[in-house]
Measured scan of single mutants.
Amino acid sequence: DHWHVHIDGERIRLDGASEEFIRTLEELIRRGTDARELKEIIKEYLR
């Protein structure tokens, strides 16, 4: 599956992301997590 998110107007691909990770991201977004912080979390995950 190819997922991607838009954060700060930037399109970030989440290739190979699990549904669990996507749900976690959605939860963080709902909580109002800062965009820079979200991008860091995604970069760490994709390593």
Rank of each mutant, 00 (worst) to 15 (best):
D1T: 12
K43C: 08
G9M: 03
A17S: 05
G16F: 10
E10F: 09
K43A: 15
E40K: 13
Y45P: 00
I41L: 13
I29E: 01
L25H: 00
E19Q: 14
F21A: 01
I7L: 09
R36S: 12
R11F: 15
L38V: 07
T24Q: 13
E40A: 14
E44G: 07
D34A: 09
D1I: 10
R47P: 05
W3R: 13
S18N: 08
T24A: 12
I29C: 03
T33M: 12
R23K: 12
I42P: 00
E19I: 14
I29M: 08
E37N: 07
H6L: 14
K39M: 14
R31Q: 11
E27S: 12
H2D: 11
K43D: 11
I41Y: 12
A35F: 08
L46H: 06
H6Y: 07
R36G: 12
G9R: 03
K39G: 05
A17I: 07
I41G: 00
T24S: 10
L28N: 02
E37K: 13
R31N: 10
R30T: 08
I29N: 01
H4T: 08
L38S: 00
I22L: 08
G16A: 03
H6I: 15
E10V: 06
T24I: 10
T24H: 15
R11Y: 15
E44Q: 12
R13S: 15
E26P: 00
E27K: 10
E10M: 06
H2T: 12
W3A: 09
L46E: 04
R31P: 00
K43E: 13
L28V: 04
D8Q: 07
R11A: 05
D1P: 13
D8V: 03
L46Q: 07
L25F: 05
L46T: 07
R47V: 10
H6G: 03
G16H: 10
R30V: 07
Y45W: 11
E37M: 13
E10Y: 07
H4Q: 06
E19S: 12
V5G: 05
A17H: 03
D1N: 15
D34W: 04
K39V: 08
R23S: 07
I22H: 04
T33N: 03
G32Q: 05
W3P: 12
L28P: 00
I22Q: 05
E40T: 10
R13K: 09
V5H: 02
H2E: 12
L38M: 05
R31L: 12
I29P: 00
